[in-house]
């Protein structure tokens, strides 16, 4: 699991760090960390629906911020629990462009062991960094 929930920061909310050898891996890990706050076992989310996510932002960190927001949007607007694969991030003149495919299904309390709702991604202590091993991010989710 390329992410870890942090105990000592953001008392009312949930903080996590995520990592990956590429920005794509990092984004995928952060997406799972966000969804895992809401669903205890991500393997119970079946692959029935598909959504395409396309975003462009000036910075990589705001790209991650918006990417995670998309997942929260689908959870409320279409009651979809999504997992992300096939992410592609490229550098453009304006900044960074993301194209991703997300798969999942409608949430079902009978089937999915649901935990707590994520209201939003906050920018408090939000960080995306390149490290010697790859890429790392810290995110605080509003609960």
């Amino acid at each position: 699991m390329p992410y870890k929930y942090l105990e000592e920061i953001a008392i009312a909310d949930i903080a996590f760090e995520a990592w990956g050898s590429t920005p794509e891996e990092l984004f995928k890990a952060a997406a799972d960390a966000t969804m895992n706050v809401m669903v205890a076992d991500l393997s119970t989310v079946a692959d029935r629906e598909k959504r395409r996510i396309e975003l462009e932002e000036e910075n990589l960190d705001l790209l991650l911020f918006n990417f995670l927001q998309e997942l929260i949007y689908y959870k409320d607007a279409q009651r979809l629990l999504l997992r992300v694969d096939n992410i592609h991030i490229e550098k453009t003149q304006k900044g960074f462009k993301l194209q991703a495919e997300a798969h999942g299904e409608e949430l079902n309390p009978e089937k999915h062991d649901l935990r707590v709702d994520v209201k939003a991604v906050t920018l408090h202590q939000f960080q995306v960094k390149k490290t010697s091993e790859g890429w790392w991010a810290q995110v605080i989710l509003d609960i």
Binding site: Y5, L6, E7, E8, I9, A10, I11, A12, D13, I14, A15, V116, I143
Partner: peptide, 11 residues
């Protein structure tokens, strides 16, 4: 007001 993070409380 909370004194303990959610992650810690769950443990």
């Amino acid at each position: 007001g909370r004194t303990m993070s959610r992650t810690k409380a769950k443990k």
